[in-house]
Amino acid sequence: MQKKQWSPEQKLQIVLEALKEERHIGEIASEYGVHVSVIHRWKKELLEGADKVFATSKSAKAAAQEKRKQEETIENLYAQVGRLTTQLDWLKKKSGGILPRE
């Protein structure tokens, strides 16, 4: 007999139902065909890892903000390069051969 593979979403649904404590955990276990000890283990894993959810979201927000800053800097640098190139071309044209052409 093969063990049933539970998706993370299914595990979460079962554990959240157990956390509500509206029904006995034995009832939930028999409804889903999961052993009570497995539900307890999933519940423990969820509660132990819950702090990582908020830590990850903070670091993800910080990383996204840093990426936006970098993109703005790159955009500003490209604009500056464009302005300087235009100015250089204008100076070369107006210099009448004083500045070397490339």
Results as ranks from 00 to 15, higher is better:
K3S: 09
Q5M: 04
W6V: 01
W6L: 04
E9H: 01
Q10E: 08
Q10F: 07
Q10A: 15
K11W: 02
Q13V: 00
V15G: 03
V15H: 00
V15N: 04
E17V: 03
E17S: 07
E17R: 11
E17P: 05
A18Q: 01
A18P: 03
K20F: 05
E21A: 10
E21H: 06
E22Q: 10
R23H: 09
R23W: 05
I25P: 02
I28Y: 00
A29Q: 01
S30T: 09
S30P: 00
S30N: 13
E31A: 12
Y32I: 05
H35D: 13
H40S: 11
R41D: 15
E48F: 03
D51F: 12
K52T: 02
K52I: 06
V53T: 11
T56E: 15
T56M: 14
T56P: 03
S57F: 05
S57Y: 10
K58Q: 12
S59R: 05
S59Q: 07
S59A: 02
A60F: 11
A60S: 01
A64L: 14
E66N: 04
R68Y: 05
K69R: 15
K69S: 11
Q70V: 06
Q70D: 06
E71W: 04
E72M: 10
T73A: 15
N76R: 13
N76D: 12
L77C: 03
L77G: 04
A79S: 11
A79T: 09
A79Q: 14
Q80F: 08
V81G: 08
R83I: 11
R83Y: 11
T86Y: 09
Q87I: 14
Q87D: 15
D89W: 07
D89N: 12
L91T: 07
K92F: 13
K92L: 11
G96K: 14
G97Y: 06
I98E: 15
L99N: 10
